[in-house]
Structures are given as structure tokens and as C-alpha cells.
Nucleic acid binder design. Structure first.
Lengths: 312, 312
DNA sequence: ATTCATATTTTGTCCTGGACAAAATGTTGA
DNA sequence: TCAACATTTTGTCCAGGACAAAATATGAAT
């Protein structure tokens, strides 16, 4: 039941897409470390065997976790997998019942039981309310899904399925609560270019809308200049940006500093997500959230510091 | 109110991100056509002035429309803009009242009046019902937004704003109608890798769910093999794939042929979107939709051809 | 005149191997 | 513990040659 004859390996462009490693990087690794060592087709072009691509994927994930290529490239795939396994960060929930529930949900994801997945999430949402649902369920679940993905226990379709279902749930819940347009503060949400993960944004929105904030999301991947311009033109009080674990911290810091300058001093810059936590002290005048639970409290503080104007 | 001193131009990587033109392509154009002609920094690296990047963006859009680089690179930006203007495809709606309504909505997008935008879309949705809303409002509106974007009348944030609002509306509407899990047929929706546009998928879902189909969306960018595997494992009756205008037709055709083979003969392959219309005859055994309006009828035909089994 | 097969041009991607700056790490001294 | 400096690691850039796939032009045959 194989596909066909020739494609017994991937081109360098395909490997770039699959692993996220730039063509230049693939070539320079080969030159320096002797790995990967792709075959060549009749045309002298690289043809990467599947097992080397798998190993590259593992290496990529470990690099994203902060390890360095030279230490990884020589290792066996099994050793790499072990490293990956040791890196799981999600500590099991304190509440064993809740913890078991999460395992069940993860099982639904693994088995593509979208209907069961939808139903269990929906029930939890109904039971806990939007804010607690995000803080107590989605936050840890995301970590678990992320860890599972890291160690290769989940494939692309499973991850997509989870994301879609959560997105549906959150968008519906947010729509139904949409605050009056006069809500305060006015918050602009988005991510930087190259950051595709929309869940963080939605979760933030779900935390803030019930507090009466007026949230406008631009979705993912807004160029820096456009964020600045949109924030000014729309007279927003706060710009909120989210970063997933894979986002290079360097890019985030540079971009945030530049954005911080571009926004007026009256506009708050709130950021969060695994890609940025712990960088707080390097970001003056930027509010860095270690956990999404802090958002409601932060909103309340903002309100105290910015009493509503008399009324226009 | 400029940013700072040094960045009076973009690096080749930044231009790649901004224009979608590969670094190799940028360098080879420079070598062959003498354009772009970037300055060099102290390090000998290319620094592209903003006006050249703007022209590159125009060229890129025209190439996506089927024109060829050699004919474009010599032209003045004004001439390029004219070409772009002549390419608008959306003929004004037959109904003048409706047409005026669309213009109003577009104005809201342009002015970032998210609240008004949301309200007008919501009203139309309520008035027309989900299916007619998608077919009679969103389809033409998408064309208008696409055209405006093409000729540079809309920027990134406006386009994002529109997409987000529509997505919120559609997801909420779909959730509220979600069919019983036993719905037929079982439809798997997704896009190919490198295709980021999710609206087509949502619109398709919105057309099918009210007909009682059981739709599972994987969101955008699922690798081909994963689509095949997911379709088999989930015993889907139909796989639906959508292509935006910018998607290279070649990639779409190749991918679809390969996917067609990979799916069993009992699984339907339904495709649509501006990137694929008109290619129908090159795709045997693939159902190509010229308009999203055809979906409900196609579902009914499918049901006739596949009478429900006795009941398990 | 339309379709089909074959030449020609255009165009994007790949190649090698050298270079260099930014980031990470190691070292030293307060 | 922190700061300043030296060293290594690492990713990205460059030039300029090559080639195959796509697009177009040319010609033959229906």
C-alpha cells in the first residue's frame, strides 16, 4: 500500500517544510557535523531518507527546548527520544479526579473521537464557567498536549483536531458574552509574524471579555508596524501579544522593545505564553504574565489606576 | 515619529517574509534583470529600500494572478498598480440595495469599526439564515475584500479584522447547529500545507452542517499523508479541501491526484476555492466546485447515491 | 481552425564553499 | 553573585554556476 516508486526520500525543500530547519542550516550541518547525510539523485540534489528526517525532527524539538545542535547531532534517535521524554514539564494536577479527566480527554484526542472530545470540553465549560475553564482546564491541557506532541505521541491531525475543537468552543463562548462596545479597557490582541498559534490569544480574550473589557483580536501574524498603527488609530488602552514555546525568545524581545517604543506611554503592553515567561526583567514597561490566571486581577488593577472619565 | 536610525531598509530575510519571494529568487532577479537593486551595508549584505519592497509586493501579486516576471520588472510602480486595478474580478451584485450594503460593510472594515462590522454581519446572518448568508453575503464579500487587498486598498490589520469577525460569527453559528454525531455523510475538512486561509473551510462547513452532515475540520495545513491517514482511520465518506487564489495550481493538482489515489475509491474528494476552479477536467474522480452554493445540492445527490444502511 | 507534439525561452530552485556576526559559553576578577 | 571579556558555536548571507520544470512559441496533422 505504498505510494509509488520514486519518492524514497524528501527534497531539501520538503525537509525544510517538515522540520522547520532552513535549507542553509541543513547544508551547513552536513558540512560541519556530517549529519544529515542525504543521498543524491541523478541530478546531484539531496534526497533525505525518512529516518534522517525523523531524527532531524527530534533534534529540532530539542533545540527549541534550549539544547544545542553540537550536543545532539551525534546522539542516537533513541537517546534523543529519552531526552525529549525527560523534558515534559506538566506536573500532574493536584486534584486526582481532574487529572484522570484530563487523561480521558487526551485519549479522545489520540483516538480522533471528536464528538466525545467536544462533549467533555463542553461539559467542563458549562460546569466551571468560561474563566475557570480556561485557567483550570485549557491551560494544563495545553501543556499536556504540548508535551505529548514534543515526545511524538501525537501527530499533526490529532493536534489540529484538539486546536479546532477548543477554538470552536472558545469563539462561541466569547461571542455569546461579547461586552458592550463601550467596555473598558480597549484591548488589541494579536501575535507577531511567524507565530501561528491562535489559542493563546483566544484564551486571553476569554479571560478578559467576562471582565467587561472590549477585546479586538487581529488573529495571528500581524507585522510590527501594523500592530503599532492599529493600536494608535484605534486608541487602544492595551496591546496584548502571545508567544508559543517555539517562538525564538530573541525575536520576541527585540520586537517587544521596538513595539514598546512605538506605542505611546499611555498604552499598556501585556504579553504572555511559554515563549516569553521568565524574560520579564529584560522588558521594562512591559507586563509579562507567567500564567493566564493573572489576567482578571491585572484588569482590575488597570481599572483602579485608570478611573473611567466622567462620561462623554 | 520614525522608528530609529539604522533600519532605513530591510534585510533579504525580511523582504522574503514581507513579499513571499524566496531569497534565491530575489538574488537571481537582481542578477538577471537588475531589479531589485538593494544597497549594501558595511558587511556587504543587501539592504532593500522601502520603495523597492513596495514594488516587489506589487509584482508578487501580479505574478500570483498569472503574469510573468520579465514583463513586470521593467514597469513603473504606477503602471503596476494600473494592471492590478484592471484585474478586479468581482462584478457588482445584481441587487443594488445589497450592493450598497456591501460597500457599507467594506467601509467598516477600512475604518476598523469592528463593532459596526460585527453588528451588520450578525444582522444579515439572522435575516438570511446560515446557508444563504454564506452564499449571498460572504462569498461576494470575500471577493470584494480580496480585490481591495490586491490593489492595496486594504492593509494587513483590516484584512485580519474582517477574517476574525467572520470566523467568530461562523464558528458560533456552526456550533449552535452541530448535527448529531450520527450525521451523514461524514466529511473531513482541511487545507494543504502552505495554505493558511481558513475561511473557505468554515464556509463549506457552514453550508454542510445545516444539511445534517457530520463535519470534522482539521483546520489549515495538514500534510498530505496525514489527510489520507485521518480519512481512512475515521472512515470518512468525503474529504473536502479548499484552495485560496494564491495557492499554486500546480501544487494543488499534484497533491490532489496523489490524495485521490491514496483514498479508497469509496471516499469522495470534494474541492473548491479560487485556486482550483476551472481545473475540473484535469482531475478525474474529484468533484470540483465552482461555487460554494453547489454544496447543499451535492450533498443531496450524495445521499441519493448512498442510501443509509439499515441501521447498526 | 483546433488539437497535438516538439523546440525554445523563461524562471525558480539547487549546488559549493567561503565568510562573518550574533548568541552561547567559558573565564576571570570584583 | 555579578560584570566584563575571550572563545566557540551557530545560523545566515554571499557569489555565480547549473539545471529541470513551466510557460510559450512553432510547426504538423487532423
Amino acid at each position: 500500500m505504498n505510494t509509488s516508486l520514486p519518492p524514497s526520500g524528501l527534497s531539501i525543500a520538503a525537509v525544510e517544510r517538515d522540520t522547520g530547519l532552513a535549507k542553509d542550516t541543513l547544508r551547513v550541518w552536513e558540512r560541519r557535523y556530517g549529519f544529515p547525510a542525504p543521498a543524491r539523485d541523478s541530478n546531484g540534489e539531496r534526497v533525505y531518507p525518512a529516518d534522517q528526517v525523523d531524527k532531524l525532527r527530534l533534534i529540532r524539538r530539542l533545540i527549541d527546548q534550549g539544547l544545542r545542535p553540537a550536543k545532539l547531532i551525534g546522539l542516537e534517535p533513541t537517546a534523543l527520544s529519552e531526552l525529549l521524554g525527560g523534558l515534559g514539564t506538566a506536573q500532574p494536577s493536584a486534584d486526582p479526579a481532574r487529572s484522570a479527566q484530563f487523561e480521558t480527554i487526551l485519549k479522545f484526542v489520540r483516538l480522533h473521537l471528536h464528538e466525545d472530545l467536544r462533549r467533555s470540553l463542553q461539559q467542563l465549560l458549562m460546569k466551571l464557567g468560561l474563566q475557570r475553564f480556561v485557567g483550570e482546564v485549557l491551560a494544563p491541557l495545553n501543556m499536556m498536549v504540548g508535551d505529548a506532541w514534543l515526545r511524538g505521541e501525537l501527530e499533526v491531525p490529532e493536534e489540529h483536531l484538539y486546536t479546532e475543537q477548543v477554538q470552536n468552543l472558545l469563539r462561541a463562548a466569547i461571542s455569546s458574552q461579547a461586552a458592550a462596545s463601550a467596555g473598558r479597557p480597549r484591548v488589541l490582541l494579536t501575535t507577531f509574524p511567524d507565530e501561528q498559534h491562535a489559542l493563546g490569544l483566544l484564551m486571553a480574550e476569554a479571560m478578559m471579555v467576562p471582565e467587561g473589557a472590549c477585546c479586538i483580536s487581529l488573529g495571528t501574524q500581524t507585522p510590527l508596524d501594523d500592530i503599532r498603527n492599529a493600536a494608535r488609530a484605534g486608541r487602544f488602552d492595551i496591546v496584548a501579544v502571545s508567544f508559543s514555546a517555539a517562538f525564538p525568545a530573541r525575536l520576541a524581545l527585540d520586537g517587544l522593545r521596538s513595539l514598546r517604543e512605538g506605542l505611546g506611554p499611555d498604552t499598556g503592553l501585556w504579553v504572555g505564553g511559554a515563549g516569553i515567561t521568565g524574560q520579564a526583567r529584560k522588558l521594562p514597561n512591559v507586563q509579562v504574565f507567567a500564567s493566564i490566571d493573572e489576567l482578571p486581577e491585572a484588569l482590575r488593577s488597570w481599572r483602579e489606576a485608570h478611573p473611567a472619565p466622567d462620561r462623554a
